[in-house]
């Protein structure tokens, strides 16, 4: 996946139940369109089928999966066990993230774990790649994970954001998938600042489905601002979703030559991704 000229990944959410038919349908639809598909891990702290299982299903379909692994629901023992199992089942790409707080989801009374943070998780995966567990014990064999991490190019204070970004790299991150990008100029500035780090950066593309969603993002998603002119365009459009797809396609077009690729988050509308890429 990381060898491609302009890497295209997308996010696929596992189902909220045992029925995987839609998940497989969407995966097949995207198979020829993307280089890899991320499978989310109980995103927004809401119960879904496990990301490891989702990744194995993608593997069977001949699609490269990116295993999203959060620190919220498992301690270091469980995370390592899942990672070793995932590796044995053919999964090689892992995206290490802290995870949303349990209070954001549908199991608010559950105990949240956070035994590790995302940076410690990346270090732990680097250890597995050397054949060492997080407690330092020798494993039989070593994993060959390619570890990814997330970054928000617009998070402030910038100094602190870049400090964390660099810590992720020194812990072993090889690629980054970013928070949604709408401000191309701002993103270019970020790319200039983080140049020559030897990591691939895939800019986040979040499909706007309606102006309501755009307002919601501006109000609730830290460090992401949908510019007023884009919101207006969607508001004045007869087909807001189509407009959102056009906006996404424009951003992708503008990012070619800027980032190493894009990571498309369609929030349940994955069937629109081929259309977006067609427009590009």
């Amino acid at each position: 996946m990381l060898g491609k000229n302009f890497i295209i990944t997308a996010e696929l959410q596992p189902p909220k139940g045992p029925d995987i038919s839609r998940f497989i349908e969407k995966a097949r639809l995207l198979k020829q369109e993307v280089h890899a598909l991320n499978v989310t891990d109980n995103q927004r702290a809401t119960l879904r089928l496990s990301s490891v299982a989702g990744c194995v299903i993608l593997e069977r379909e001949g699609i490269t999966p990116v295993l999203q692994m959060t620190c919220r629901d498992r301690n270091r023992l469980a995370i390592q066990a899942d990672l070793l199992g995932a590796h044995a089942l053919g999964i090689r790409h892992v995206l290490a993230i802290t995870g949303d707080d349990i209070s954001a989801g549908d199991h608010k009374e559950a105990k949240q774990v956070f035994d590790l943070d995302s940076i410690q998780l990346i270090s732990m995966i680097s250890g597995l790649n050397k054949g060492l567990s997080s407690s330092g014990t020798q494993l039989k064999g070593r994993t060959e994970f390619i570890t990814g991490a997330v970054v928000n190019p617009f998070s402030i204070p910038e100094e602190l954001n870049l400090l964390r970004f660099d810590k992720k790299i020194s812990a072993g991150a090889k690629f980054f998938q970013t928070q949604a990008v709408y401000d191309i100029e701002g993103f270019k500035k970020f790319m200039d600042k983080v140049a020559n780090r030897g990591v691939k950066i895939l800019a986040g593309i979040l499909l706007l489905k309606s102006s309501r969603m755009a307002h919601f993002i501006n109000k609730n998603v830290p460090g992401v601002t949908v510019p007023g002119n884009l919101i207006e365009e969607i508001e004045n459009s007869k087909d807001p979703l189509m407009k959102g797809m056009e906006i996404a396609a424009n951003i992708i077009r503008e990012l070619k030559g800027v980032s190493d690729g894009v990571h498309i988050m369609a929030m349940g509308m994955e069937e629109m991704i081929p259309g977006i890429l067609e427009m590009v």
Binding site: C71, R72, T98, G99, D100, D101, S103, Q112, F114, D117, S118, I119, Q120, V150, N152, S155, I156, L160, L163, R164, K167, Q179, P222, G223
Partner: peptide
Amino acid sequence: CPKGLLNGPCGGVDN
């Protein structure tokens, strides 16, 4: 920090 993070903030800190 509600998540007890030891290496800096998560992505949830707002502007």
